[in-house]
Simulated assay, not measured.
Amino acid sequence: MLMSNTDRPARLHYLANGFRVLSPGDHVVCGVTGRRIALEDLKYWSAERQEAYADAHATAQVLGPR
């Protein structure tokens, strides 16, 4: 039976220039806001902290200005 990845969080391994899918899903959760982020919209993450961020503002709250 084929299982759908809809409404299931993905488990990712974040790398410096991308990420690898460890467990399939359709979204991840922001490490700051708790908001769902669709995988196709994921643009911000920390490879060091292994967490995703919803937007640049959430990223800056954790990592500070660069």
Rank of each mutant, 00 (worst) to 15 (best):
M1P: 11
Y53C: 02
E51H: 11
G64F: 00
A56H: 03
T59Y: 08
A10S: 11
G18T: 00
Q50K: 06
L15M: 02
V32S: 06
M1W: 05
R49S: 07
R11H: 11
A60F: 02
W45V: 06
G34M: 09
S4G: 12
T33S: 14
G64P: 00
L63T: 04
D7G: 14
G64N: 02
G25A: 07
G18D: 03
D26Y: 09
D55P: 03
S23W: 05
M3L: 14
A47D: 09
S46A: 03
G34C: 11
H13D: 01
A60G: 08
D55L: 12
W45E: 04
V62I: 12
A58Y: 00
C30Y: 01
A54Q: 12
T59W: 01
M3G: 15
A56C: 03
E51D: 07
A16Q: 01
K43I: 10
G34I: 12
A58D: 10
V21H: 13
D26W: 09
L12N: 07
Q61T: 04
H13E: 06
L63M: 09
V32A: 14
L2Y: 11
L42A: 05
H13K: 14
V32F: 03
R20I: 09
F19Q: 13
A58I: 12
Q50W: 07
G25H: 03
L63A: 03
Y44L: 07
G25L: 09
T59A: 11
L15V: 10
K43L: 10
